[in-house]
């Protein structure tokens, strides 16, 4: 995986990810009440919505960090986390889920770098141990990725020695090292000091331009306006409305969307 500035890639019609009527409960609370959406290859989708709207939970369902209670998530021609058995879905074993997750990278709000490893080891551990590529190749690829996120000089630093923005960029490099087809971003800049947000957004924008399919949960309206191909506005576990940024951000149809946008802009 490389981040190349190949110009904006037009989203093709072929969907890479589809979610149909995805339901999720936490105890007595219906967090997701039937989410249906589809993401085309090369598309950058931003999920917006007030906190508690279920957007982060939905993102975590896409790579099966959360189980679902109903509906289907299809990624790259496979049902994620479940196999169809007669009228119901049966959860897969952890090993099978692990195999599926290799195609989906994820970046977390709190970075979640491995603190006992250097930046380079953070990036190389999964490719060497899971993709089974030779160590020298993995190190060369990792150095290239660290260079692309602007951290070539920090390969041997531990996460505790890096700023939040640097840690998040290492986390992006770590996810890309598995050569995923889809990248999930869960509020990647929310835990950063304001002056560090720009560097992370720049890397994400470069990644989007290179043609990576991305689903981004964010509060950065500027990023959504400038980079996203589509915006999905969620509230209380449902998709309120979706469409291109020009439509949703400039002339939202629903009162809830209007109220949210007024409060954040």
């Amino acid at each position: 995986m490389t981040i190349t500035d190949g110009g904006s890639v037009q989203a093709s019609a072929e969907p890479l990810l589809t979610a149909r009527r995805v339901r999720k409960r936490f105890g007595k609370v219906d967090v997701l009440k039937g989410i249906t959406l589809s993401v085309a290859k090369g598309e950058v989708m931003c999920l917006l919505g007030p906190s508690g709207s279920g957007k982060s939970t939905f993102l975590r369902c896409i790579n099966h960090l959360e189980t679902i209670d109903g509906g289907r998530i299809n990624f790259d021609g496979e049902l994620i986390g479940y196999t169809q058995r007669k009228g119901a879905l049966q959860e897969m074993t952890p090993r099978e889920v692990a195999r599926q997750r290799r195609g989906i990278g994820m970046v977390f709000q709190r970075f979640n770098l491995f603190p006992h490893m250097t930046a380079l080891e953070n990036v190389t551990t999964a490719p060497i141990g899971i993709r089974k590529i030779p160590k020298t190749k993995a190190v060369a690829e990792a150095r290239e990725l660290l260079d692309q996120v602007g951290l070539a000089d920090f390969a041997h630093a531990h996460p505790a020695q890096l700023s939040g923005g640097q840690q998040q960029r290492v986390a992006i490099a770590r996810a890309l090292a598995m050569e995923p087809k889809l990248m999930l971003f869960d509020e990647p800049t929310s835990a950063l000091d304001p002056e560090l947000v720009g560097d992370v957004l720049d890397v994400m924008q470069k990644l989007a331009k290179s043609g990576m399919t991305m689903v981004v949960v964010t509060h950065e309206i500027g990023f959504a306006r400038g980079v996203a191909d589509s915006i999905v506005f969620m509230d209380e576990g449902v998709v309120v409305e979706s469409g291109p940024p020009s439509e949703i951000l400039r002339s939202p149809r629903h009162q809830r969307t209007k109220a949210f946008l007024d409060s954040v802009m």
């Binding site: 790579n63 960090l65 952890p94 090993r95 889920v97 692990a98 195999r99 599926q100 997750r101 290799r102 989906i104 990278g105 994820m106 977390f108 709190r110 979640n112 770098l113 491995f114 551990t125 999964a126 141990g129 899971i130 986390a171 770590r174 996810a175 598995m178 999930l184």
Partner: peptide, 22 residues
């Protein structure tokens, strides 16, 4: 931190690999 396990799983690591390496 439980986030460590999630990060490892999101990279496609198996439970045993996550246990031993992370």
């Amino acid at each position: 931190d439980p986030g460590q396990k999630e990060a490892a799983y999101s990279l496609g690591m198996t439970p045993l690999f996550t246990l031993l390496k992370v």
